[in-house]
Design a protein around this nucleic acid. Structure first.
Lengths: 73, 73
DNA sequence: TCACCATGTATGTTATTTTTGACATGACAT
DNA sequence: ATGTCATGTCAAAAATAACATACATGGTGA
């Protein structure tokens, strides 16, 4: 909803914990382009709900473990 | 990512369980317009991750309890 | 009947997300 | 030195989410 998104994520950590999966590999599995993964990791914007779900699914974690919304806990 | 979104939600049920909160009231609390809530309830499109988080927050439930992604388990 | 409220519909506009392609950099191996 | 790989940057365009406004409908109550 905003340019500097308030949502943070742990994609980077999750990728490295997942056998150092590359951005390209993650992008392929999620079904988006590499630039999209990169932009999300950098916090340029937050992904759509669908993409967020898919990312969490690839890592096998609940969505809230991949993406955090401040004020949530 | 597609027009007919694969994501389903329980906004309607959650609203009624929350003392029959109206669409307008939910919209106000979330910080979006009534049309946005209506469109989401009708599955016209899925909300942004940020709006999804806020909605779950209003109802005091985890995001996955408000929105479901098929194939999640 | 009349007013009000919640919901739904319709249309158009703006903002944001996502895509694609091209190019730059540092690390590493040949 | 050359090639490859992962990452990062930039920019334009397409797709989708969100906005605003107006209007329609069914229910409820005065």
């Amino acid at each position: 909803m905003a340019k500097p998104t308030a949502i943070t994520n742990d994609l980077r950590r999750l990728r490295f914990e997942a056998d150092e999966m590359t951005q390209a590999e993650l992008a392929k599995r999620v079904g988006v382009t590499r630039q999209t993964i990169l932009a999300i990791e950098q916090g340029k914007y937050s992904p759509s709900l669908e993409v967020a779900f898919k990312i969490a699914q690839v890592f096998g974690v609940p969505l809230e473990q991949a993406f955090q919304y401040p004020g949530e806990g």
